[in-house]
Every structure is written in C-alpha cells, then in structure tokens.
Lab assay of single mutants.
Amino acid sequence: ETQAGIKEEIRRQEFLLNSLHRDLQGGIKDLSKEERLWEVQRILTALKRKLR
C-alpha cells in the first residue's frame, strides 16, 4: 500500500461518510446506514493511522 493509494482510499471513504451523514440528516432512521457510518469511520481512522 502506497501513500498515494492510502490517500485515495481516504478520499473515497470520506466521500461515503459525507453521503451517509447527508442521508441520515434527512431525518430517516436507518439502522443499517448508521452501522455503515460507524464502520466507515473506523476504516478512516485506521487509514489515517497508516499515514503517520
């Protein structure tokens, strides 16, 4: 995994995270989306740690 590859994956995950946040802010309670949001946040945290 290169730095560029990790950064690209971070961009993808952040896009997905923002999309999930928008969907959930629409007021629709969706447990699967909430679980996915937490999963994406965990992935992002792990990726950012790899960059250090």
Score class of each variant (00 low, 15 high):
1 E>C: 11
1 E>R: 05
1 E>G: 08
2 T>F: 08
2 T>C: 08
2 T>W: 14
2 T>K: 06
2 T>Q: 10
3 Q>T: 12
3 Q>C: 11
3 Q>M: 15
4 A>D: 10
4 A>S: 08
4 A>K: 10
4 A>V: 06
4 A>I: 15
5 G>V: 10
5 G>Y: 14
5 G>M: 14
6 I>L: 12
6 I>D: 01
6 I>S: 01
7 K>C: 10
7 K>D: 02
7 K>A: 12
8 E>G: 05
8 E>C: 12
8 E>Q: 08
9 E>S: 04
9 E>Y: 03
9 E>L: 07
9 E>D: 05
9 E>N: 03
9 E>Q: 07
9 E>G: 01
10 I>G: 03
10 I>N: 01
11 R>A: 08
11 R>N: 04
11 R>Q: 06
11 R>G: 03
12 R>I: 07
13 Q>W: 15
13 Q>I: 15
13 Q>D: 03
14 E>H: 07
14 E>T: 10
15 F>H: 14
15 F>K: 14
15 F>R: 12
15 F>I: 15
16 L>E: 06
16 L>V: 06
16 L>M: 03
16 L>Q: 03
17 L>N: 01
17 L>M: 06
17 L>C: 04
18 N>W: 11
18 N>F: 11
18 N>H: 11
19 S>M: 13
20 L>M: 03
20 L>Y: 02
20 L>D: 00
20 L>G: 00
20 L>W: 01
21 H>L: 15
21 H>M: 14
21 H>T: 13
21 H>D: 04
21 H>F: 13
22 R>H: 10
23 D>R: 03
23 D>M: 06
23 D>S: 07
23 D>T: 04
23 D>I: 06
24 L>S: 03
24 L>E: 02
24 L>T: 05
24 L>N: 04
25 Q>A: 13
25 Q>V: 14
25 Q>S: 10
26 G>Q: 08
26 G>C: 12
26 G>K: 07
26 G>L: 12
27 G>C: 08
28 I>M: 09
28 I>S: 10
28 I>G: 09
29 K>C: 06
29 K>N: 11
29 K>Y: 09
30 D>Q: 03
30 D>P: 02
30 D>A: 03
32 S>E: 15
32 S>Q: 14
33 K>C: 03
33 K>D: 08
33 K>M: 09
33 K>N: 05
34 E>Q: 13
34 E>S: 11
34 E>R: 13
34 E>L: 15
35 E>R: 12
35 E>S: 09
35 E>V: 09
35 E>W: 10
36 R>W: 04
36 R>T: 06
37 L>G: 01
37 L>M: 14
37 L>V: 09
37 L>P: 00
37 L>K: 03
38 W>E: 12
38 W>T: 13
38 W>D: 13
38 W>P: 01
38 W>A: 14
38 W>C: 14
39 E>I: 04
39 E>M: 04
40 V>F: 04
40 V>I: 12
40 V>Q: 02
41 Q>Y: 12
42 R>N: 08
42 R>A: 12
43 I>N: 10
43 I>H: 08
43 I>L: 14
43 I>F: 09
43 I>G: 02
44 L>N: 00
44 L>Y: 01
44 L>A: 00
45 T>L: 11
45 T>S: 11
45 T>N: 09
47 L>C: 01
47 L>H: 00
48 K>S: 01
48 K>T: 03
48 K>L: 11
48 K>I: 13
49 R>M: 11
49 R>A: 14
49 R>T: 09
49 R>D: 15
49 R>F: 07
50 K>T: 06
50 K>R: 04
50 K>L: 12
50 K>M: 08
52 R>G: 12
52 R>W: 14
52 R>F: 14
52 R>S: 13
